[in-house]
Simulated assay, not measured.
Amino acid sequence: MTIKAVLFDYSGTLFRLEQDETWLADLTDHSGSPLDIEAQAELMRRMTAPVGQVVELDAEHLHAWQHRDRDPALHRKVYLEVLGKSGVPRREEAVALYERLIDPGQWTPYPDTEAALKAASERGLKVGVLSNIAFDIRPAFTARGWDAYVDEFVLSFEVGAVKPELEIFRKAVEGLGVPATETLMVGDSEEADGGARALGCEFALVDPLPTAERPDALLMALRGFGIG
């Protein structure tokens, strides 16, 4: 099979939201005590989990959770609820942390993100970034000049569809102008990103490890399909 386009997931694939001690240092729990290290780590896990419900929610917030990546207002609503139920009961603290979490400038790229994007682009392949997300991630690329390697951004809140729905993969391959059968999807979720297979795409799974522990998984994924 000849691959003519590559779609990359964002969170846990190209970039990772990693714990910054300064964000969490002033957070306090219901008793007013600082969050311990385990609580901080669990908080970050809940804020970045690609699939699955992370806390118990009432019907109103469950609806918001199920549609969070289609609507920024619902995303904000439910994640403030998640923060409140995850040890950050003070609204002002939750809002301040949430604003950092949706700032693409706060996300850390994997060590080989630039090399992977560049390798695909310089081979003449179409490159897309396809993400279930409720905020604009383009600034994370433009700030580094990496937008030069990306032909198309397909963001769930802009197109009204989320992975693994076929519609979002269809929009992505149509935007790149390459058949699904000649497109590789690279992502960290078998459930969400792996849904591209149902449209005919190839799929490569990477592990959403901390960036310091995953130096070359993207390049290895591309090489597995003769790219690089």
Rank of each mutant, 00 (worst) to 15 (best):
V127S: 09
G32F: 09
G124Q: 09
E21D: 15
L199F: 01
P89S: 00
P34Q: 01
E93P: 07
A217W: 02
V154M: 04
L62A: 14
W146R: 06
Q106N: 15
I227N: 04
A59P: 06
A73M: 13
S33F: 09
A96F: 01
F225T: 03
K171L: 07
E202T: 02
P215Q: 02
D20P: 06
P34T: 00
L27A: 04
A180S: 00
H30N: 14
E81R: 15
D147G: 15
F169W: 04
E158V: 13
D9I: 09
F8P: 10
G194E: 03
T113D: 06
P215A: 05
L184Q: 02
R16G: 10
L184A: 01
F141K: 00
A64T: 13
L57T: 09
S131D: 00
P104N: 00
L125V: 09
P139L: 04
V173F: 04
L97C: 06
T211N: 01
P111R: 02
P210Y: 03
L17S: 11
L199N: 02
K4M: 12
F169P: 05
D71P: 12
D151C: 12
L97V: 07
R68Q: 14
L209T: 11
D147Y: 08
D20W: 03
E191G: 09
Q53D: 11
G87L: 00
E60W: 08
P109G: 09
V186Y: 08
G87E: 05
Y98C: 02
L222A: 08
N132T: 07
A204W: 07
P215M: 09
V162F: 04
Y79V: 13
